[in-house]
Every structure is written in structure tokens, then in C-alpha cells.
Deep mutational scan, measured.
Amino acid sequence: MAAAAAAGAGPEMVRGQVFDVGPRYTNLSYIGEGAYGMVCSAYDNVNKVRVAIKKISPFEHQTYCQRTLREIKILLRFRHENIIGINDIIRAPTIEQMKDVYIVQDLMETDLYKLLKTQHLSNDHICYFLYQILRGLKYIHSANVLHRDLKPSNLLLNTTCDLKICDFGLARVADPDHDHTGFLTEYVATRWYRAPEIMLNSKGYTKSIDIWSVGCILAEMLSNRPIFPGKHYLDQLNHILGILGSPSQEDLNCIINLKARNYLLSLPHKNKVPWNRLFPNADSKALDLLDKMLTFNPHKRIEVEQALAHPYLEQYYDPSDEPIAEAPFKFDMELDDLPKEKLKELIFEETARFQPGYRS
């Protein structure tokens, strides 16, 4: 834990890192770190609560700039109880001085990944967590956004079992017609939660990839272990087919990539493993919904509104309290091709509203 900075004593240090967030945020305490930044909790002297502050230093890398800009653009436009918001952003007053960006968010005690390492969940908890994931996802999908990296560590939890989806750095506007060349190379989302079509096709992607990830998360809540822990690309596919069985001819016809289709045709026939054999203690309604989410063919996979209306979630289902976005989200430009200098300018502009004396 960093010592509390005395008023006016300059930035606090946390594990050798400068955290320049005073005077409003003090009493910093280390939480963890990701690929390009550290997260601390801090005391907000204005709202009198502890908050989470993520320090991001992305400006050396085009990919990190892209992810940072995506996350900020999306989260500043989203407003939903099951999606983490941005409360404040701290950065230098000029673009030349801006080396880091500090993002202030609600402090959540833990995440689903940490929880599943230590606790076996009751059916009631599984049901409530799944409902909140789908409630947040309904809003995301209504904005025409794909999260693309749903996994237990991106689901934040607090002691009252509130759940918030975080990390929109890989999110995209849904565009089933656009052929994202190089899709697989830039697709760094965790393999275990990846839909089979991501490994088999490169053309376009749809909201059904997020539903697949939610199915993987439900299976993990039922058993405290990942359902498809593939060691590499082909191993991942083999794990999936080992449980779902061989795809039907109709399902194979959806695979545009001939090499991928021929690979699947070359494999020995596998039978589907019954879900109640894998999860003998699970609620039968939970397994019915799991089956509809972990469907090989993305066109037959359940959609988020149908999933919310499934009998497993009937005690929570309330369409009048499951809000959607006001308007579909649009990125003005494809960020993939922009140089990091341009992305830095866009991050600077996007964060201006939090600067003292800002006038829109």
C-alpha cells in the first residue's frame, strides 16, 4: 500500500510507478496490472468513496492506442447498470505532455475469474450472474457493438453480487458484411471463450460470437473449470467437437473457408456428449439454455433477447427493466489503419471533457 500523499506533496508512487492523480484522489492501494497499465484503488475526496484507477501508458504502440481509444469512446457513450462506466479521466493539459491516461471507475471487490478459483456457486448465484451478463449484453448488442472478449476476468463483482462487464478494448461495431482481413492475426481474445466460426472463417462476425462466450462462462460457473481449455488453435476446435459432436452437413455448409471445411470433413465422426453427463448436478433449465448458447452453427445460436426470456431466468426476466441503447454506435473511421500519432490526438480530444474549465 502506498503511503497517503500529504496535501501538495506531488504524485504518489505505487510499486515504483508514478500515479499522478492528486489532489482529488489519494490513499492509493495496488490492485493489479494488465498488459499496459496498473490498477489501484484510491480515495475520492470529492465523492467520499474509494474508486478504481487504471493507469494506461499506450502511446508507444499502435495496438494499445487503438484499444484505449475504443474503450474510452464506447464506455463514455454507454450507460447501463451492468456495464462499468467511466467516472473521470485524468491526463496532462497538453498533448505533448500526455504520456499516461488515468481512467477512474467504480471500485468492484472482485471478478468472476477470482471468485470461481475459490468458491463453488449455488444455482441461485449462477442464475443471477447469468441474468446480469445477458442484461448488459442486450444493451451492448442493441448499440450494434460486439464485445468480443467476454470471459470471467472481464466480469466485475461486488459483495452485493452486482455484476458489471468491463474491458471493451477489443470491441467492434457489428459488421457481418465487412471482410476484416487479418482478423485472426489481430484477434487476441482469450482462445477458450472463442466461437468456432472465428477459427473457421475470417469473413465478418456477428453478435452470436458473444453468446458463445457467455455459454462458455455459464459452463464454467457450473463446474469451476473452463469447458474448452484448448492449448492452441486446432486443439481448441477438437475440444469443442469432442463435446458438441461432429457438425451436420448443414452446419458445414455455413463454413465459407474450404480449407477449414475440408479439415472438419477429414475428422472421424464424434457423438455429442449429453450435458447432464458433463454437469450431473446442474439445473435442467440451465443445461437447456447452455445447449442453445453453445450451438456450433452461429445462425442457430440463441440471441440475447431470447436467452433473457428463457425459463431458467424467469424469476428475473423483465423486458421493461432491460434497457437498450438510445442509438446504434458508430465509429467515424476504422481505427485499425491509423498511425499511433493520430490515435493519440483522438484520445486527447475524447478525454477533453474531463479537463478543468472544459467548454463543449
Results as ranks from 00 to 15, higher is better:
2 A>P: 13
3 A>G: 01
4 A>F: 00
4 A>I: 02
4 A>E: 00
5 A>E: 10
7 A>W: 08
7 A>P: 02
9 A>C: 00
13 M>L: 15
17 Q>K: 12
18 V>G: 15
21 V>K: 05
27 N>P: 09
31 I>A: 01
37 G>L: 03
44 D>S: 06
57 S>V: 08
63 T>E: 12
63 T>V: 06
75 L>M: 15
76 L>F: 01
77 R>E: 00
79 R>E: 07
80 H>S: 05
80 H>M: 02
80 H>A: 06
83 I>F: 15
88 D>K: 04
100 D>S: 01
104 V>H: 04
105 Q>L: 13
105 Q>I: 05
109 E>S: 03
111 D>P: 01
113 Y>T: 05
121 L>M: 15
121 L>F: 11
123 N>F: 08
124 D>Q: 08
129 F>I: 15
130 L>V: 05
132 Q>F: 08
134 L>S: 13
135 R>I: 01
138 K>E: 14
140 I>G: 06
144 N>Y: 15
149 D>E: 14
154 N>H: 10
155 L>K: 01
157 L>I: 11
158 N>W: 13
160 T>D: 07
160 T>I: 12
161 C>V: 06
161 C>A: 05
163 L>R: 02
166 C>F: 14
169 G>M: 05
172 R>E: 12
174 A>M: 04
184 L>Q: 15
184 L>E: 13
186 E>P: 05
189 A>C: 13
190 T>G: 11
192 W>T: 13
192 W>G: 13
195 A>P: 07
197 E>L: 10
197 E>R: 13
197 E>S: 10
199 M>N: 00
201 N>C: 05
206 T>C: 14
207 K>H: 12
209 I>P: 08
213 S>F: 05
215 G>H: 13
218 L>S: 14
218 L>N: 09
222 L>D: 09
229 P>Y: 00
230 G>T: 00
231 K>H: 00
234 L>F: 12
240 I>T: 03
243 I>W: 03
244 L>M: 14
249 Q>M: 06
254 C>K: 06
260 A>S: 14
260 A>C: 00
261 R>I: 09
261 R>S: 12
264 L>H: 01
265 L>Y: 06
266 S>V: 01
269 H>V: 08
270 K>H: 03
275 W>R: 15
279 F>Y: 14
285 K>C: 10
286 A>W: 01
287 L>P: 08
288 D>Y: 15
291 D>G: 05
293 M>A: 07
294 L>W: 02
295 T>H: 03
300 K>A: 09
304 V>L: 10
304 V>E: 06
305 E>I: 02
315 Q>F: 04
324 I>H: 01
324 I>R: 09
324 I>C: 06
325 A>T: 14
325 A>C: 03
326 E>D: 15
332 D>S: 06
339 P>Q: 15
339 P>R: 12
342 K>T: 09
342 K>Q: 11
344 K>R: 14
345 E>N: 06
346 L>H: 11
350 E>H: 01
352 A>F: 00
359 R>Y: 05
